[in-house]
Design a protein around this nucleic acid. Structure first.
Length: 448
DNA sequence: CGCATACGCGCC
DNA sequence: AAACGGCGCGTTTGCG
């Protein structure tokens, strides 16, 4: 059963996912508006069926190893103490390390580290973010322990401690997936946010090791390979990109070969890495400035590569232009399923705001369709598991992380369940290119 | 004192 | 910090 309140919330959100409009608090009136907005299919076929699935996932939760988290917490506490001592000594006194204001005063005033070329924040503080501190590493030995302190404190305060507090008597944490929390159609997650659990680096691994399967169970993860690029290939109808996915080519390598104008065999890891940044950035409307910053290549090269990219994938450029034009004409964009997002700023004379709306316009149909696909996959997989009699028992759906689903599966059915779930996800939606799902199972999230 | 904002940072 | 889209959250700081 879905409450009227819930239905109203969903309907209002589908009609205006940015939640800027004042809409009727009346289901009958809203249902008319759903039809008029072209989102009743999304409402009935995706969002409503998803409600009980998300409820079940919330109820189930994911198990954490509390003894291990306590051990981690102590280890980190100890290293934080040592770092703080070292930092205070070098600074010649105590201060609040968590205060960017105080830290900037210590670095640039007391220790007289040159602030030449250092960015200012919105309120005029000299920035102390990672990127800035990295630049200062060679100027003073205090920087390195500060960077390490930041890293550990972040992990401990944002993940380790909240997880320990949020775990129930069975050591399980129950995130809430918010169905109306984003403007693109994605889900969000809170208390705790399970969609930003660290994965990179030594500490990321340590955190993931804290998420474990019940005794006799396994954690099993299934993630869509390059789902947003496959969606882009489909909506843009770009023949090169479609061919690449149909032949299961390495898309980043192919892009590198194109923009660097070298044969596939001559693509270096660095070239592939820059091309990967470009492939992702294109869907966000990334410009030369951001591309050169994030990939480490010069501004001139960045400009050249973006130009070259759009010359090679001409249909992508064309689709982006057409999408922006439609957005200007209608005041909204929509994805292939009719999911809609209003863009009141798209025709503003202020270029800064109009350009921001343009980037949203070209991103939402991509991100929003990828979101629909994984939601449909959740619905189909839930059906499959129910038919098998496994739902909430021998195969439990735990998490959704944008392009990934995480399950907890009984040892006895693991071998049978893995390919079934994978198949179900790969057939969740018909694109112009195959959907590809990578899967893995293990006893902790790190193993997966 | 609670609340909003700034800053910084984790993920897809 | 953002001419790179989408989130949530811990800590500090300023305001009422």
């Amino acid at each position: 059963m879905i409450s009227n309140e819930k239905k109203i919330e969903l309907a209002q959100w589908l009609i205006d996912p940015d939640k800027k409009q004042t809409l009727p608090h009346d289901l009958a009136a809203l249902e008319e508006k759903l039809v008029a907005s072209g989102v009743s299919k999304v409402y009935k076929d995706i969002e409503l069926p998803l409600v009980e699935i998300l409820d079940s996932m919330h109820e189930t939760g994911i198990k954490v190893d509390l003894d291990y988290l306590t051990k981690l917490s102590r280890e980190m506490e100890k290293e934080i103490g040592e770092l703080v001592k070292k930092i205070y000594k070098q600074a010649g006194g105590e201060f609040n390390l968590n205060s960017p204001k105080q830290l900037s005063e210590v670095l640039f005033d007391r220790l007289k580290i040159s602030s030449e070329g250092i960015r200012s924040t919105k309120t005029g503080l000299r920035s102390t973010d990672i990127e800035t501190l990295e630049l200062l590493k060679s100027h003073h030995p205090i920087i390195e322990p500060i960077l390490r302190y930041r890293e550990i404190f972040k992990i401990k305060s944002t993940y380790i401690e909240p997880l320990r507090e949020l775990a129930d008597k069975k050591s399980r944490v129950h995130t809430s997936f918010i169905q109306t929390g984003t403007a693109t159609g994605r889900l969000s997650s809170q208390n705790p946010n399970m969609q930003n659990i660290p994965i990179m680096g030594e500490l990321g691994k340590k955190v993931r090791r804290a998420f474990v399967a019940d005794k006799g169970y396994n954690l099993a993860s299934f993630d869509y390979s390059q789902i947003e690029l496959r969606v882009l290939a489909t909506v843009s109808k770009d023949s090169i990109m479609i061919k690449a996915f149909n032949n299961d080519l390495d898309i980043h390598k192919l892009t590198a070969s194109k923009v660097y104008k070298v044969p596939l065999e001559k693509v270096t890891p660095e070239m592939r890495s820059a091309a990967k940044t470009l492939n992702f950035g294109i869907s966000y409307g990334m410009g030369p400035q951001a591309f050169s910053k994030t990939s480490g290549i010069s501004l001139g090269e960045a400009k050249k590569f973006i130009q070259e990219y759009f010359a090679d994938f001409a249909a992508v450029k064309k689709w982006q232009q057409e999408t922006i034009e439609k957005a200007r004409a209608f005041g909204y964009v929509e994805n292939l399923n009719g999911r809609r997002r209003w863009l009141p700023n798209i025709n503003w004379p202020n270029r800064r705001f109009a350009a921001e709306a343009e980037r949203i316009a070209i991103n939402m149909p991509i991100q929003g369709l990828a979101a629909d696909i994984i939601k449909l996959a959740m619905i189909w997989v839930a059906d499959l598991l129910k038919k098998k009699g496994w739902w909430e028992k021998r195969a439990r759906m735990l998490l959704t992380i944008h392009d990934e689903l995480l399950f907890e599966i009984d040892d006895d059915i693991l071998k049978e369940a893995m390919p079934l779930i994978k198949k179900e996800m790969e057939s969740a939606y018909k694109l112009s290119v195959p959907l590809k799902v990578d899967s893995a199972a293990g006893k902790t999230w790190e193993d997966v």
